[in-house]
Design a protein around this nucleic acid. Structure first.
Lengths: 222, 222
DNA sequence: CAGCATCCGCTTTGATACTG
DNA sequence: CAGTATCAAAGCGGATGCTG
């Protein structure tokens, strides 16, 4: 008798912890390798294509990404939707439940901040990853004054730090009229923004800063 | 000649994401299977023995637990210490860095709460796991009044809900003089404490409540 | 090219047995 | 009590191939 091979096609048996505990149940869903990094990409980029997600995840195997996306869709964390008329492609968008993972990603990111300082060695880096620490630590020191924008160029994609009614938001893209532009290697750029390194010191290591010097003070972390 | 066994000892190659990102670095350390559940046990129990941790993690393989504990020690999340004179054993205790994971565990637990309501089927349950949702959601509605204690018996170990200067803390153990004692199956007990089920309704399903009825109101969640 | 699926070799995990 | 030893099964990484 022939043994059944491809029995259950594309549904994994899902190896869960089997514990009646919110943490365990959550980890059943978001605890697999790469899963939270996929969520990170969708949180930072907003709705985007398969390929965009993959570009933000150097090292992931394509089949694994496809599988994770299927799982995330099945668990109601993201959904696929057709892009508006101009381009004909499928967009991946976080659901409300997926957006709610921002608090989780922030908590882990904040905890992991202390592990980051050391060195890069041959770590991959994508400039939009800067957005997370910036959103986490920067504050608007002068909420009453007119908003400012700082453009940061540190890798493939430029990002913009904007003050908007008291909060600091970081997004991928360019500023129409930036008050300052900061350019250089990521660890240094980050240290400058975090106030751990003066612009003067950083400039001797390849960082460039053009524009209003007060812009940096404006968003300095507490 | 005796062959050396302990050659490669305890250093794995460690398969990290290789990304210069706080989230990825954190997941390199706490992203492996079982790791955060081990941290949960240490957070809920405080310093305890290997066996205590294992009892709180039904299904874990002993070698895996031993390996994870080694990794957590190496990454500075816990440390081993000799127990005080009476008992001669090794205690596992979270370091400050490990305690800082409470915010991470809480964030994930809060997110995972919505996944929990459904059914138990054949999920394992340990009564001390109740402590997390209780710490997350209960509040002291009358901080000025004398503190109260509610004992909950829902499984192997009793736990105590205590109000202490405005906060609600849950711990493993018994209350010397509880204002109320709640007994019954976990999902029901939880629903009662969360205010989603009245004591009267719960009693028809096997829940017992003995003591001051106002104790329950006192710690009701917002 | 975007968006996968398939195959293969290696690593991690799970279950059990055994030891100081 | 606190692990180590062993081995099968599942998961993962990388390469490659297929389809619209």
């Amino acid at each position: 008798m022939v043994t059944q091979k491809r029995v259950r096609a594309n549904t994994r048996p899902r190896r869960g912890y089997g514990q009646y505990c919110a943490l365990a149940k959550a980890l059943d869903v978001i605890g697999d390798r790469w899963t939270l990094l996929i969520v990170r990409e969708l949180l930072l980029r907003g709705p985007c294509r398969y390929t965009d997600v993959r570009n933000g995840l150097p090292g992931i195997a394509t089949n694994l990404l496809a599988e994770r996306l299927r799982e995330l869709e099945a668990t109601g964390i993201l959904r696929r939707e057709d892009a508006p008329p101009p381009v004909a492609t499928t967009l991946l968008r976080l659901t409300a439940r997926g957006e709610a993972l921002r608090s989780v990603v922030h908590a882990i990111g904040r905890w992991g901040g202390s592990l980051l300082g050391e060195q890069i060695k041959d770590d991959a880096f994508c400039s939009h990853w800067l957005a997370m620490p910036l959103d986490l630590y920067l504050t608007d020191r002068a909420p009453k004054r007119p908003p400012i924008a700082i453009e940061v160029r540190s890798g493939d994609e430029p990002i913009v730090i904007e003050t908007a009614n008291g909060a600091v938001r970081t997004r991928i893209g360019r500023a129409a009229n930036p008050d300052a532009v900061l350019t250089g290697p990521a660890p240094l750029v980050l240290r400058v923004l975090m106030g751990k390194l003066t612009v003067g010191e950083a400039k001797t290591h390849g960082v460039r800063y053009v524009g209003d010097p007060r812009a940096l003070q404006r968003v300095r972390p507490v």
